[in-house]
């Protein structure tokens, strides 16, 4: 069992958890993730390690509620525990000094991006931070990314905070103004795809971090495989980071939707269990809203 030591609500449906996991805290490197199972009967999902404190033996996870399991995680109080946390998994980010790096985050992609940006900074790079979100209330960890950035831009799609528009527009301007040796982009697949398309014609190496559906996280099931350079690669052991110009994002997005109808059933069953029929109706409404 891995007790929750600290919990902070970052936004309406985003929480930050500090979880006891001493072995993982000691070993983890930027870019790595854990597999968590909240409770008996729960599913195993991958979550990136956003930060760690080896001295107290905790790791930091940032969780956005998108389904049943993330919902259960977000409801955990301090003192409650996650049944299972396994890791650190995946290959650490390859960190080198390339001169100037653009670190681009979409939504809670900032959580996995922050330790990478931090390591790039420590390796001597000039770091250009870009953080985008749909609107002001969903901007999280702004201070952290800003703290390791030499230049920093925050954007919101609806213009409610920072520069209006998408991260790609801000990045595009930066790429015109500065000689950027590498881009690291982490966020929703559609955002990573847009960044990769922006940098492809410019020939700027672009690292993305994939977050597919996983079961074991150790290369045993192959469920997380995705097409990279036309080859099936296992994200859990070959990744999670890949050359964004090689990733087939459309296939990846399709695979992420593999269980969409099952997820709706799962949420409905959970809602029915807790709130009866009214809960069912609300869950169904929420599902429709998400789909639109």
């Amino acid at each position: 069992m891995n007790a929750v030591r600290n919990r902070r609500q970052l936004a309406d449906n985003i929480v930050q958890l500090e979880v006891e996991a001493p072995r993982i805290a000691r070993r983890r490197k930027p870019g790595q993730f854990v597999i968590v199972r909240v409770r008996d009967g729960g599913e195993r999902i991958p979550l990136t390690i956003a930060d760690a404190d080896a001295s107290v033996g905790t790791i930091t996870l940032v969780v956005q509620v998108v389904g049943k399991t993330t919902g259960l995680l977000a409801e955990l109080d301090v003192g409650e525990a996650i049944a299972d946390v396994a890791g650190p998994l995946g290959r650490p980010t390859h960190i080198e000094n390339v001169g100037t790096v653009a670190a681009v985050a979409g939504g809670i992609g900032v959580a996995p991006l922050f330790p990478i940006a931090q390591a790039l900074k420590e390796a001597g790079n000039r770091v250009l931070g870009v953080l985008g979100a749909r609107s002001a209330s969903l901007v999280v960890w702004e201070d952290r990314l800003r703290s390791v950035s030499d230049r920093f831009i925050v954007t919101t799609d609806d213009g409610s905070y920072g520069r209006p528009g998408r991260v790609t527009e801000a990045l595009s301007d930066l790429l015109m103004e500065e000689k950027v040796g590498q881009v690291v982009a982490i966020g929703p697949p559609i955002m990573m795809k847009a960044v990769a398309e922006l940098t492809r014609p410019l020939g700027i190496p672009t690292l993305v971090s994939l977050n597919p559906i996983m079961v074991d996280g150790t290369g045993m099931c192959g469920g997380c495989r995705g097409l990279v350079g036309g080859q099936n690669r296992f994200v859990c052991v070959d990744g999670p980071e890949f050359d964004g110009h090689q990733v087939d994002f459309d296939n990846m997005m399709a695979r992420l939707s593999a269980y969409r109808e099952y997820e709706a059933v799962s949420l409905q069953a959970a809602a029915a269990h807790r709130f009866g029929e009214e809960g069912c109706r609300l869950a169904e409404e929420a599902r429709r809203a998400r789909e639109q």
């Binding site: 009967g41 079961v215 409905q268």
Partner: peptide
Amino acid sequence: ELIGVYSANEYLTRANLMRAYEFPKVDT
């Protein structure tokens, strides 16, 4: 890479270890 292609490992792990045959009573 299509949806609906499993390795036997994944299929059996979901069914056995994760007890997916009890879904939605279990979450997998």
